[in-house]
Design a protein around this nucleic acid. Structure first.
Lengths: 143, 143
DNA sequence: GTACGACCTAGAGTCGACTCTAGGTCAAGC
DNA sequence: GCTTGACCTAGAGTCGACTCTAGGTCGTAC
């Protein structure tokens, strides 16, 4: 059993998994991949001890991943932050590039929604008009 | 060399690849996966002959894929259409479910954009104020 | 003293969606 | 008659991002 406190004298990997929604496996994997900014400290028994800062950093990474940033890019970004100030131009470039990709994704999804809504409309019309209409004109997008 | 006509007496796999942007490999793969509505016809030599309808269907599938619909789901949908009319309720359900997921994706991406824009702002401010500012407050999302 | 649960490492396995390879057919051009 | 290019099949390989396994340590609870 773990004593769950609201202070932050160090968190176990299990506690971080709970707080972030990442699996314990994924947390170890991210560490191997260099995705954690500050090297994770260990206790006497070699177990990982995370800080609240680590959790905050992981939350950032989770959002970047959710928007499709690949792990190698997150690693590059992590390295830049680890290096400290002086490389803001590169960090900005990375973020701007990613923002473009996210905007492109949103545009693509929005366009896909048009097709989906069209199909939904076609099927709703068919179902409203007739439970077994013999003509199905749903296939050609323009139809 | 292929004679490229604007009529549609049948298209080779290469022509369909060109028209859809899918690779020749992917087209054969999709066929194996049951993603093409009408069984693709063959010429005397066993080569695939596609119709304009096939291309239109593939374009629909490409948009569904681009919005994250997994191939097994596209296959199910393809099978429903292949079965003919009478299953519009199921087709509608499939599309509504997918629409929900697409809307969720867009919401997630839009939320991610907030973080990205925040970071962009932070770095732009740093760069505007000072080319080598000693404090870097970019890491904590709320910071 | 032993069972339990949370943790450790190194490395193998999985999954989705392609992508590529090996080995072959076939028609047209030289 | 030989090369070229587009096509064929069956099946292996790749890639990203985990996920799981084997085999082991450690501290507390019974």
């Amino acid at each position: 059993m773990e004593s769950v406190r609201t202070e932050s004298p160090g968190l176990s990997i299990g506690q971080v998994a709970e707080r972030t929604g990442l699996s314990v496996h994924a947390l170890r994997f991210y560490e191997r991949e260099g995705i954690i900014e500050q090297a994770v400290r260990r206790d006497g028994g070699g177990r990982r001890v995370y800080t609240e800062y680590d959790v905050a950093w992981l939350r950032v990474c989770i959002i970047l991943r959710a928007s499709g940033m690949p792990l190698p890019t997150i690693r590059r970004y992590t390295e830049m932050v680890r290096q400290g100030t002086g490389n803001e131009t590169e960090r900005l470039a990375l973020m701007l590039e990613h923002r473009d990709r996210v905007n492109a994704q949103i545009a693509q999804l929005t366009q896909s929604l048009d097709l989906i809504n069209h199909k939904v409309g076609v099927y709703e019309d068919i179902l409203a008009a007739n439970p077994a209409d013999p003509s199905d004109s749903c296939v050609i997008p323009a139809g």
